[in-house]
């Protein structure tokens, strides 16, 4: 799985950090940052959930 984020779109809701805290973080302005763009399989469900709840469609996944 390959994770892409679009920081200009992010509205700092923090939801991705709640869903997958080992993959997503927030900078000083609350904007999303990636801790890894190739998370291990144990994080995949959380990452998919993060992409599904992100209110700004700022998280894109390439599966595989």
């Amino acid at each position: 799985m390959h994770v892409h984020i679009d920081q200009p779109k992010c509205v700092a809701s923090g939801q991705c950090v709640l869903m997958a805290p080992d993959v997503f973080d927030q900078d000083d302005d609350g904007i999303v940052e990636l801790l890894t763009d190739r998370p291990g399989p144990e994080h995949h469900d959380g990452v998919r959930e993060a992409a599904a709840v992100c209110p700004a469609a700022a998280i894109r996944l390439e599966e595989g």
């Binding site: 700092a12 923090g14 709640l18 927030q26 302005d29 609350g30």
Partner: peptide
């Protein structure tokens, strides 16, 4: 909206909470 909202998003980050 984004310009103004971003002025106050930092303090609401998960880690701060």
């Amino acid at each position: 909206h984004a310009r103004l909202r971003r002025m106050v998003t930092g303090p609401f980050a998960i880690r701060k909470m």
